[in-house]
Design a protein around this nucleic acid. Structure first.
Lengths: 242, 242, 242, 242
DNA sequence: AATGAATGAGAGTTCATTCAT
DNA sequence: TATGAATGAACTCTCATTCAT
């Protein structure tokens, strides 16, 4: 699945000044959406924070919804980049998982906007919500499939595996990276984004789930492949949107 | 954690007719919130759908926000009830998990409002969002702890375990119970709420993660308990809100 | 041609108070449209003049355009009523024409809004503009046809005749009833809406045009009937909209 | 009445290129006004259609209103030119009328903008509306007066006569030249701008109205001259605006 | 208990116009 | 000569809430 249509986007800025203004509005919009939520993030709030006139907003974005979608695209790109960077440096699967999860938790801890914004897509731009998750899953599935081929991974359908792991990251991150912001242990104490014990427990759980059959046993066709309705199993074209 | 404050709730209805009216508004409100989202679910839409005057709404609820919170409470109660009913009938932990997940997926498939409404709580009533998840986790943690005491479960911190499992259910349910609505296999083909292969793959993953150490070994204090910042570890008082 | 669709009109008021409020808004809207023109007649201006809140406007009209169309319908009904009343009292055709024109000019002199509003329909509600003229023409054609059958009228296609006469009334009225408002001779001096000499000249012109052939002569097929593309030749159902 | 003030017109272009740019904007503006109406014809629409920057517009016109007025002046000049050309070639009055009406209808059929733009002047530039009609009437009155002096015309006040004839042309043209655009008979079938039967009927009506008293009789001062409040009776200075 | 009329602040969006380049 | 970035007042319309009946 590629980036959804961008609709009636205004023409791109033609001068350097224009480019900077557009970028400033986009950045500020993400902050305002994260702080107030989509509906209470008025154009006035955004333009005031960006220190431009209201009309200037419409020079670069055709609507509030459009800027929201671009913000989601942006975040998606960032989080995927962070995870990809981290995990691709590792060689064995388990190490890659640790690195990937750590990267995700850290990103979540440092960008609370991730949760606060993506969640709102449900009603604001439903297709974006789905696109966001499927985009992350895509890249994941590939890695899992490769590891399975090498026998490094339990023979569980990689599609389900990818989504399940994403679910773990999502909720654990919400609970201990997002909500725990106000917690005692400050950021410097959490090199993994979440408290060390939580990180370790999470990883142990994942390692157990992913570990290939220890006793040679467990042969056979494992399980059939899950049929998917969407384009989720398309090979990931990581980083195509720089 | 107990039910959050209910604010300036209107006086309870005194007549049978009033009770019915209130119930009708509540039921309809859930539908309207699920269909349009909180912000686009106007009081007019709700009262028209409930076939009462606008003023009548304020006879029973003090604000739009209040009725939303009550809807969330209601859904939370329902989903916990469904899962509790199903899993408490089982004796061993793994069977209980299967039953619990199945119940959750089925509930999700039949009540899309669960996702569509709870997600919105993020900005509408943030404390409700947290309360909802913690409430579900609570009951879970108890069961896990007991199972661990009996050696039925791997010695992973039950708090983390509970949230991780919740995350799996959440995302897999979203992907295959909620989104797959438009999928080929109709409801009667999915006794588990999600396609059979997905259910089996999910359960296999969970079983592997939860299975106690096979090699007798693995003694000792396992891992320390994760410190929690919230009231999440309070023993569950299931069903206190009838 | 019947009244064009009324679109998404709000539900009619259900109480006496509501009925009065709606009527007040409608009356005031006509004044404001006449004074400022459609585009400069803001909802704020209308509601302030009607002494109601802005929201109240939308209780009874679904948009500015809708209230405009209703105003046009109203004016059309009034002017047709005035002309019909006056001319139907007369027996011979020429007398009826005098009475009809006099009624029209007087109406125009006393309701400058007629011109100022109808003209704007061109871009605001094009179908209303056409409907307005066709509606007036309709009634006219019938009367002419009857008079022709009785030999009271020159055998000119009544459809063309009707529109041509309407054109005369329109422009002469604009020139001497509308624009001459600021003229020396005040209203009491113009029992015909326009200055006496103008009225007489206009009528002499019309009488000459309509008079049947004086010399018995003039035989033959007169002229063929003009083909019309619209429903303009449908018999008038005068006054169906009281 | 001479051309109304032209306000704060920008300095005339000094280069050939500038002259062309200005002309292009003017031409395009007429099209855009005709298509969208004054209020919906934004400067952006005009400048985009003319393929110039927004700022360029203000190099040649000081405001939207100003360009509108110039467009009206232009149209007025064109329509008068067309009518003058046609009728001045004829010698007797009736032939001149036929030629003038034919020219007008043809112009209207080929320049729908005539109606669509002039009508809007009512609120945009009221003095222009009056000026437009008076300008056309002027030339007319002269011709009529001359014809009357020669006994070719019924002794009806020429001022009233001129406006009445203009009204006939206006409405018949609107009905059968403008609206009938979508009609069966295509343009090549209407050498007179309107369907032949309509043209003949209209002309017969006019001939009857204008024909001088057949019985030599008709003595006396005919009718007095209508007093006019405006400058409408000023002799026409045809074509002073090249 | 029930209603619908009334409100007005505030939302998103447009656009004629200015100005630095 | 030509441009496009920038503006902000003003627009239409919505909606949670109040209140008299």
């Amino acid at each position: 699945m590629t980036t959804p249509d961008q609709g009636d986007a205004r023409t791109a800025p033609r001068t350097t000044k224009g480019t900077r203004t557009r970028a400033r509005i986009l950045r500020v919009a993400a902050e305002v959406f994260a702080e107030h939520g989509y509906h209470d993030a008025s154009i006035v709030k955004i333009t005031e924070a960006a220190d431009v006139g209201q009309g200037t907003f419409y020079l670069y974005f055709s609507s509030k919804q459009e800027v929201f979608e671009e913000v989601v695209r942006d975040l998606n790109q960032q989080v995927r980049h962070a995870m990809f960077e981290a995990s691709s440096a590792e060689t064995d699967r388990i190490a890659a998982e640790r690195a990937g999860f750590r990267a995700f938790f850290r990103f979540a801890a440092q960008n609370p906007a991730l949760y606060r914004i993506v969640r709102q897509a449900e009603f604001v731009a439903p297709q974006m919500l789905r696109w966001h998750y499927e985009r992350i899953a895509e890249g994941y599935v590939d890695g899992l499939r490769t590891a399975q081929a090498r026998g490094e991974l339990a023979p569980i359908d990689p599609e389900v595996l990818a989504w399940a792991l994403m679910g773990i990251g999502e909720i654990v991150g919400m609970r201990w990276a997002l909500w725990e912001d106000d917690a005692p242990g400050a950021e410097e104490d959490r090199p993994d984004g979440v408290p060390p014990l939580v990180f370790e427990a999470t990883m142990r759980l994942i390692e157990r789930a992913l570990a290939p059959e220890r006793t040679g046993a467990r042969v056979g066709p494992a399980d059939a492949t899950v049929p998917t309705a969407g384009p989720a199993s398309v090979p990931a074209t990581q980083e195509e949107q720089p």
